[in-house]
Computed example of a mutant assay.
Amino acid sequence: MRYFEDLAVGETASFGRYEVTREEVLDFARRYDPQPFHLSDEGAADTHFGRLAASGWHSCAMTMAMLVEQMKAVPTASLGAGGIDELRWLKPVYPGDTLRCQTELLDKRKSATKPHVGFTRQRMTVFNQHDEPVMTFIANALIRRRGDGDTAPAA
């Protein structure tokens, strides 16, 4: 288990593999982002996408799926997240793309009021199969600390 104290500012990690399928792009769009360019090639033809493209929110969801798999592979004492900053969709994500993630720990600090909590900020970059960045954001996470944190109530 990796705790707050185990994390070093500047460390990076590369992980994940997510194959984007047409069916999943359509299903997500129908349910959550029913704009024409997310629903059909015809609806996207006259846009800058040129063809069916995944919703940016779907890209976020696929990234979260990869992140959870990474947290299972390398257990971290996560206490959840406080949000994201600077979300940017840099390139369209298309059916047939394969996504992967890279993180960099930008900074960390101990909570001033909760001795079992540390806060981190990590830059997440999502790449397609051509190593082109398609999305970036800063993740604000809460990580359990050792010591006093060992006796803290479960979050």
Score class of each variant (00 low, 15 high):
2 R>D: 03
4 F>N: 08
4 F>H: 09
4 F>M: 11
4 F>V: 07
8 A>C: 10
9 V>N: 10
10 G>S: 09
11 E>F: 02
12 T>G: 14
13 A>T: 09
14 S>H: 06
15 F>V: 12
15 F>A: 06
20 V>T: 13
22 R>G: 02
23 E>L: 14
23 E>F: 09
24 E>N: 14
25 V>W: 07
25 V>A: 03
25 V>C: 05
26 L>F: 05
26 L>R: 12
28 F>E: 04
29 A>Q: 07
30 R>A: 09
30 R>T: 10
33 D>N: 14
36 P>S: 11
36 P>H: 06
36 P>N: 10
37 F>P: 01
40 S>D: 01
41 D>H: 10
43 G>Q: 03
43 G>M: 03
43 G>H: 01
43 G>W: 01
45 A>F: 00
46 D>F: 01
46 D>Y: 00
47 T>Y: 04
50 G>R: 02
52 L>F: 04
52 L>H: 04
52 L>E: 02
52 L>P: 05
53 A>F: 01
54 A>C: 12
55 S>G: 15
56 G>K: 01
56 G>I: 04
57 W>D: 13
57 W>S: 15
59 S>E: 08
60 C>P: 01
60 C>V: 15
60 C>K: 07
60 C>Q: 05
62 M>G: 13
65 A>K: 12
66 M>G: 15
66 M>P: 13
66 M>T: 10
66 M>K: 03
67 L>R: 11
67 L>F: 06
68 V>R: 14
69 E>K: 12
69 E>Y: 01
71 M>N: 12
71 M>I: 00
72 K>R: 12
73 A>Q: 15
73 A>S: 15
73 A>M: 06
78 S>V: 05
79 L>T: 04
79 L>W: 03
80 G>N: 10
82 G>P: 00
82 G>W: 00
82 G>M: 11
82 G>D: 13
83 G>S: 11
85 D>V: 06
88 R>D: 06
88 R>F: 04
89 W>A: 11
89 W>I: 04
89 W>V: 05
91 K>F: 01
92 P>F: 03
93 V>L: 01
94 Y>Q: 04
98 T>Y: 03
100 R>M: 06
101 C>E: 11
101 C>F: 05
104 E>D: 09
104 E>S: 14
106 L>R: 15
107 D>L: 11
108 K>F: 07
109 R>H: 10
111 S>C: 07
114 K>C: 10
115 P>C: 11
116 H>T: 03
116 H>E: 14
117 V>N: 13
119 F>C: 11
119 F>E: 06
119 F>T: 06
120 T>A: 05
121 R>Q: 13
122 Q>V: 07
123 R>G: 09
123 R>Y: 02
124 M>F: 08
124 M>E: 09
124 M>W: 06
125 T>I: 08
125 T>C: 06
125 T>K: 03
127 F>V: 05
127 F>R: 07
128 N>I: 02
129 Q>F: 02
129 Q>N: 12
130 H>T: 04
130 H>S: 12
131 D>R: 02
131 D>K: 01
132 E>G: 03
133 P>C: 03
134 V>D: 11
136 T>W: 01
136 T>Q: 14
136 T>D: 08
138 I>L: 09
139 A>C: 06
141 A>Y: 00
141 A>G: 15
141 A>V: 00
144 R>N: 09
144 R>H: 05
145 R>W: 00
147 G>P: 00
148 D>I: 00
148 D>Q: 15
148 D>H: 11
151 T>P: 00
151 T>H: 13
154 A>D: 10
155 A>I: 03
